[in-house]
């Protein structure tokens, strides 16, 4: 299943947030969206998944989601959004409970996603007992449980310390290599973007427009051996973002 964003514009009252976003997300592709803070990255992601309605334009699903897909567009949030009153297992079963699955079937899915995210030993732990990295792993497991066609990741690693971020990035690469998921990945961290993105979209400051689109052709599993090229890409991205970020930084918020 592909996604096509057509002339997407969004306003909050009088405030123009996004203007004419045109973007295609192909199957098995990770599209990273970077931009200065407040440029509407997260708003864009909410529009894509149908959590907010765009003022103008539309998001088109092209093709049917794969068979067995329970929730085609599935989010992973920056703050993990785990229910503190449910165990790891309970948090995953939450998203399977309204689907009319048999108990055995749901149990099977839970065991499977916990194994794939290396969480099998933590099935009965409470969220408060887990570190940030583990919490985000649970959120990834929860997303995998509904077999999404596209994962919408809203700064998934931004609440984590840099070491955990590094580990989780490796996990995501590994997961992509084995499963080949499709994702829209919003981040402000350019290192993440060049490590994970097949396509990197640079947004301008508010109102956000697509300023540039950068493709990286190096396969994900070989990127660690191409430090130089990635570094150049990152510098290129930063040169595009720098002025936007500086201008955005000096704007008054309610101006």
């Amino acid at each position: 299943m592909d996604l096509h964003l057509q002339k997407l514009s969004h306003d909050y009252g009088k405030l123009a947030v996004l203007r004419d976003i045109e973007l295609e997300v192909r199957s098995r592709e990770i599209v990273c969206i970077v931009g200065p803070s407040g440029c509407g990255k997260s708003t864009l992601l909410r529009l894509v998944g149908g959590l907010e309605q765009p003022t103008r334009g539309q998001v088109m699903q092209i093709g049917e989601p794969p068979a067995g897909c329970l929730n085609p567009l599935t989010y992973i949030f920056q703050d993990f959004a785990l229910l503190p009153w449910r165990s790891v297992k309970g948090n995953i079963s939450l998203v399977l409970e309204d689907r009319g699955l048999g108990r055995g079937e749901a149990e099977e899915i839970i065991t499977d996603v916990l194994r794939r995210t290396k969480l099998s030993d933590f099935a009965d732990a409470w969220p408060r007992q887990l570190s940030g990295g583990m919490k985000q792993r649970v959120a990834v497991a929860r997303a995998l449980a509904v077999k999404p066609a596209v994962m919408l990741m809203d700064e998934p690693l931004s609440a984590l310390d840099s070491q955990t971020r590094e580990l989780l990035m490796d996990d995501l690469v590994e997961l992509w290599l084995t499963e080949g998921f499709t994702a829209v990945y919003v981040t402000h961290n350019l290192a993440e973007a060049v490590r994970l993105g097949h396509k990197i979209v640079v947004l301008s400051r508010r109102p956000g427009r697509v300023r540039e689109m950068v493709s990286i052709d190096i396969p994900l599993d070989q990127r660690k051996n191409h430090v130089k090229e990635l570094d150049d890409k990152q510098k290129l991205l930063w040169s595009m973002l720098r002025d936007e970020a500086m201008a955005a930084d000096q704007e008054l918020l309610d101006g």
Binding site: G49, L51, L70, N71, L73, T74, Y75, F77, D79, A81, L83, W85, L94, V95, E97, D98, R142, V146
Partner: peptide, 27 residues
Amino acid sequence: VDRNLIRMGQSFGLSWMSIVRKIILPG
């Protein structure tokens, strides 16, 4: 109750009743 949790429930397509029973009430 944390709005993000409610948004999470909506994003996973939980029914209104489920969101009230499993997210809002315990919260």
